[in-house]
């Protein structure tokens, strides 16, 4: 589904060349939930940005559903991003003067979805994150956890196959972080592929697959066969079923 082969990303300034990613290769299968960890400045966010087509890579090959991303124009990348990828950010990145309904509506408008269908999806997504009754509220009228749930609803509204989350719980207290994580796990269980960058080792352990990025390279690769008790993953759902 997502294949990266020898991806390099070099930031070039007048005097300094910074290699954010070096020969980074990764295969992600449909329905996976991957936690990406690593020290600050290791290239986790760069990887996520490239995966989300938010910035170009310098060298290598990136296939998303067999589409060679490197050959696409900016507008084609925007279309593909809009149709297949949902983003969740650490800072929520809700648009402050749009209410919750309108915030969730943003990606749907860019996709050209008709008003009635937009309404249906937005109400479903807000319902899913437990904020349907607050659709007319502005983001600043919500707590941090609620804002992140709106951001998740916005990411889900486009019914993306990929959900890219960059430190989704980084600005939340532990209780809210757990609630957000449970929400992500539910979403993954429903079929979405999730790649989550996190510094939180406990959250990372809840993901079935962990990858570690160090100095722009894939350092380690762990598939958790045993999971912490009480945590539901696609694998043990299948077992329990």
């Amino acid at each position: 589904m997502l294949k990266m082969k020898n991806i390099n990303k070099v930031y070039q300034t007048e005097k300094v060349q910074t290699h954010a990613l070096r020969d980074f290769s990764l295969d992600v299968e449909e329905g996976e939930f991957i936690a990406v960890t690593g020290p600050s400045g290791s290239g986790k966010t760069t990887f996520l940005n490239i995966a989300g087509m938010l910035e170009p890579f310098t060298k290598g090959q990136y296939l998303l559903d067999d589409v060679d991303v490197g050959t696409l124009s900016d507008n084609q990348r925007a279309d593909l991003r809009n149709q297949k990828i949902g983003f969740i950010f650490q800072g929520f990145n809700l648009i402050p003067d749009l209410n919750l309904y309108e915030n969730v509506e943003v990606p749907l408008r860019y996709r050209g979805i008709k008003s009635a269908e937009r309404k249906r999806r937005i109400e479903n997504c807000l319902e899913k994150v437990g904020l349907a009754s607050r659709a007319k509220h502005l983001p600043q009228q919500l707590s941090g956890g609620q804002q992140q749930r709106v951001a998740i609803a916005r990411a889900l509204a486009g019914e993306p196959r990929f959900l890219l989350a960059d430190e989704p719980t980084g600005n939340l207290d532990s209780l809210m972080a757990r609630q957000v994580m449970e929400l992500l796990e539910d979403i993954n269980r429903e079929g979405a592929t999730i790649i989550m960058v996190t510094h939180d080792a406990e959250l990372a352990r809840r993901a079935p697959r962990n990858i570690q990025v160090v100095d722009g390279q894939l350092a380690d690769f762990t598939l958790y066969q045993s999971r912490p008790s009480g945590v539901v993953t696609p694998a043990n759902v299948a077992v329990e079923a």
């Binding site: 938010l54 507008n75 925007a78 279309d79 991003r81 809009n82 648009i95 860019y110 996709r111």
Partner: peptide, 16 residues
Amino acid sequence: APEVGVRRALGASKRQ
């Protein structure tokens, strides 16, 4: 620009 960044991430093309 930050808001534009969010809109771009959510699928807005440069043209839009």
